[in-house]
């Protein structure tokens, strides 16, 4: 589903922060992406989401060489990817419910066709009482759960999560991990970037470890 060949990335004229990446993400797989802070986890997720272009090498996503894609095709591919970034990127003028429903809304679907699904998911992540609240009054953990709910609501083929348990307590962290596992069982390939060892110890999964710009894989 995803294939990287000799991929390298640098910002501007800086050093190459990712070097010679060669790996594949099979469909339905589950993996943790880990490494020390500043190792390039976020950058790698952005490469996977096509919001960064590699400075060299080949990135193949869903069978497409991404260097050949136009803007509309990228938008279509992104509809198959869910992403949770560290800064959440919720829209402040929309309620939690509307933020989570956004992936459905931009496809032009009728609201009644997904309302129940969105509300169920919000309850599951513990935001049932906060559905009509605007993001500015949510706590960091609540925002994080809203961002996760938005990323998983449309059951993407590929889920990318950047430190998804960074702002929540261990109990809720386990609950969110279970959500990712459920999502994976229903067919989504999941990549969770984290340096939270206790989170990784809770689930036996493939580990991609970034170290000094290179990727080491522990199956």
């Amino acid at each position: 589903m995803v294939r990287f060949e000799n991929v390298g990335l640098r910002y501007g004229l800086g050093p190459e922060i990712l070097r010679d990446l060669n790996f594949q993400i099979p469909a339905h797989s589950f993996q943790f992406l880990t490494g020390p802070s500043g190792a390039g986890k976020t950058s790698l997720l952005k490469l996977l989401f096509l919001s960064l272009r590699p400075t060299r090498g080949l990135v193949n996503l869903f069978g497409h060489d991404v260097s050949l894609l136009g803007k509309d095709e990228i938008a279509d591919l992104r509809k198959r990817i869910g992403i949770v970034l560290q800064d959440f990127r919720l829209l402040d003028h929309m309620t939690t419910y509307e933020n989570v429903a956004l992936p459905f809304r931009v496809t032009g679907r009728e609201e009644s066709s997904y309302r129940k699904e969105v509300i169920d998911l919000l309850k599951w992540v513990g935001l049932g009482e906060r559905m009509d609240a605007l993001p500015p009054i949510l706590s960091g953990g609540e925002k994080q759960r809203a961002a996760i709910a938005r990323a998983v609501i449309s059951r993407p083929h590929l889920l990318l999560a950047d430190e998804p348990t960074g702002n929540v307590d261990p109990t809720l962290g386990r609950r969110l991990l279970r959500l990712f596992i459920e999502l994976n069982k229903s067919g989504t390939a999941v990549i969770i970037a984290t340096h939270d060892i206790t989170l990784m110890d809770q689930y036996e999964a493939r580990r991609l470890v970034l170290h000094q710009g290179r990727l080491h894989i522990y199956e």
């Binding site: 279509d76 509809k79 198959r80 309620t95 419910y97 509307e98 429903a101 992936p103 809304r105 496809t107 609201e111 009644s112 309302r115 129940k116 699904e117 509300i119 169920d120 998911l121 309850k123 599951w124 049932g128 559905m131 009509d132 998983v152 609501i153 449309s154 059951r155 993407p156 083929h157 959500l179 459920e182 999502l183 229903s186 067919g187 989504t188």
Partner: peptide
């Protein structure tokens, strides 16, 4: 595009926690 095109069960099962779905539109 997303897999919601195919039939599937609920992503999360709330069991008896399942809320009453309000009829009013929420995308305002």
């Amino acid at each position: 595009m997303s897999r919601t095109d195919q039939p599937h069960g609920p992503l999360v099962d709330l069991g008896r926690e399942r809320p009453q779905v309000p009829a009013r539109a929420r995308n305002l």
